[in-house]
Each structure stands twice: as C-alpha cells, then as structure tokens.
Simulated scan of single mutants.
Amino acid sequence: MNLQAKFAIDIPADIKKAIDLQGSRNIIEIPTAELGKMRSSLNDFIKILGCRITDEDIAEFQRLNRSVGVADLPKVGSIWPFHPQQMRRTFAMFGARHSLAGFSAIKQQFKHLIVRISEYYGHGAASARAEDVRLDHELIYLLKESRIDFEATMLYEFYNSDQPLAGKKGLQIVEERQDAPIIYKSWEMVRKLVKENKISYHTTLVNGCVNGHKCDMYGIINPAYCIECDGAIITVEHGNNWYKKHFSLVTYVSSLKNMSEGEFSHYIPQIRCAEKVMDGLGIKYVGYTCDREDP
C-alpha cells in the first residue's frame, strides 16, 4: 500500500498557499458532516475487507515516505487507517513511479494551480522507480544483454551488407567489406568482443560511433563535430535525420534579416556537414547559398 495522508510530511509554505487557493476554486462543496460519513464508511469497508498491515506494507511505506519517523508508523497487523486523500496520493505516485503520467498530466487531472502541488503528491516516485530497476536484477541483465545484441548486430551488418555508409569509419568499413577482418564474419565473434568491451557501437540521431568512452563529447555542442570524428558511422537513417536538420536550419537562417557572425559560424558548418552527409549517401536536397564565405 503506497498510501499516505494521515502520515503526511509538513507541506511547504508556497504549496500550502496554493492548496488554499485551490480550495477556493471548488464549485461543489461537500458538507463536513457528509465527508465524515464518507470517511467512516470507507474505514468500515476496509475493516470488512480485512486489509491488515503487513511487514511488506511498512517497507513500501517507508520507501515512499522517508520523512516519517518509526514512532509514527502504523502497526503491523492493524487495520490500515484509510483516508480519501490517500487515493489522490496513490494515483499520483502510481502514475509517476511507473512512467504512466508526468506531473504536468497529473496537474491537469487533479486541477491543481501549480505543478509543485502535483509533485508533492507524487514525491518519492523518482527514487522508488530507480530503486525498482536497481533491485530487479533480471531486468538489468536483460537490458544489458539486449544492448550487447544490438551493438553486435549493427557492427556485423555494417561489414556484411551492401548498405551505404558515410562518415570516416563508415567509409572505411565500405572499403574493407571485400577483405574484412575475420572477426567481423561471425556474429557470435562480434558479440563476444562487444561483451568483453573490446569493440563498441553507440548511436545518436545524427550518427553512430565506435569510439565509446574515448569520445570527447564535442558533438553535444555542435553535431558537425561528430561527422569529422574518426569513429563516425552514418547510415541512411541518420542521413534522413540530417536532411530534416538541413531543411530546418536553412529555413531558419533564411528568415534572419541580419545574421550575426556568431550565428553564421554556428549554423553554416552544420548545414555544410548535412550536405556532405547527404552527398555521401546519395540523398537529394536543395543546397544553401549565401553571399558570405564559409567559416
């Protein structure tokens, strides 16, 4: 049971103020006496169901409510002290914890004024989600094995197919296909090397790379750096993404009335790299021309 209302932590002042304002927006007001009857009925229902607290419930409660002291915890074997507000807490927690809904969506569902109120209802979801994954050893193993299979399959297909490739490493692979190293002739051998971290392959929207952790990460600042990397492998799928990027960049710079030197030196290299990639992969496009000399 990931329910929390009776054992709530102190609400921050700004959230408390927003909750007060939130209450003033209610169109339908339920009399306090009726609310009391509802709570009483719900607790009677819980008793009929025999929902008694277990050690597992306490462990889960502590994981999601780390600020609650041991002395304030409900007792194992007792009936859970139910409160209607726990339903909202449970809904927010379940949605956020299992990536079924973001806090913006929860905000809309709960009709909150600010997203921080929704985050308060779902506090602890992120850490619980991370712990769920960490404790699920089978899931971790499957994710790792799937990643190894993906890298091995991509590298094997690069060397043993006729798909067009661009990028420095991609062009090198194309040249070596007729006389490729024997290790790339067997998928099992490639997978073994990937698993031993002797070779690797990682992909982004703009290119693939075999440099692994040796990457200097300059491509984060400007993806044009990735194209000149010695480990770059660019597939047709990457080329299509470069086509879209080229179109959006050309549209943007064409809309600028007075492009500064900083903007020019940032965008033009990316446009030229996109054109270079598309030329290498045989993708048709409309080139960009301007009066200035390329940087």
Rank of each mutant, 00 (worst) to 15 (best):
L193N: 07
G287A: 08
G239W: 00
A125M: 00
D149W: 06
G280E: 11
I182M: 14
G231R: 10
N222V: 01
D136C: 00
Y243M: 09
A166H: 10
S248I: 07
T153A: 14
G219F: 05
T90Y: 15
S127H: 01
F94S: 04
L193M: 11
I53F: 01
G102I: 02
F150V: 06
D132V: 01
Q270E: 09
E175C: 08
H83R: 13
N197A: 08
P269Q: 03
D57K: 11
C51A: 06
E60F: 09
T289G: 06
L42R: 10
E131R: 11
Q86I: 03
A152K: 08
E237P: 02
S78A: 08
S161F: 01
Q178T: 11
A128Y: 00
Y141W: 08
E34P: 01
L143R: 07
A274R: 10
I106N: 04
D216P: 07
R89E: 07
Y156P: 03
K37Q: 14
L155F: 01
I233S: 06
V210E: 15
I28L: 09
K37C: 03
I48Y: 00
Q62T: 02
V70G: 06
L249S: 11
I140L: 15
N26I: 03
F61E: 02
D149M: 12
S254H: 13
G280W: 04
A96M: 10
I268C: 02
R292H: 07
K244A: 09
T251P: 03
D149S: 11
K47C: 00
G208S: 08
A232R: 03
C51S: 04
N207R: 12
Y252E: 14
V286K: 13
P74F: 00
G50V: 00
K257G: 11
Y156D: 03
A33I: 09
M189T: 05
D149C: 07
Q172M: 15
A128P: 01
V250H: 14
K284S: 14
K47P: 01
S260T: 05
M259G: 01
P269E: 05
I9Q: 10
C209K: 13
L143C: 09
L139E: 05
I58R: 15
F91I: 08
L143P: 00
K111E: 08
N211F: 11
H123K: 09
K111H: 12
V194R: 03
E176Y: 06
D57S: 14
I19G: 08
I53G: 00
D55A: 15
A59T: 13
V190S: 07
L49F: 04
E145T: 00
K214A: 12
Y121P: 01
D149V: 05
W187Y: 11
S146G: 05
S41M: 14
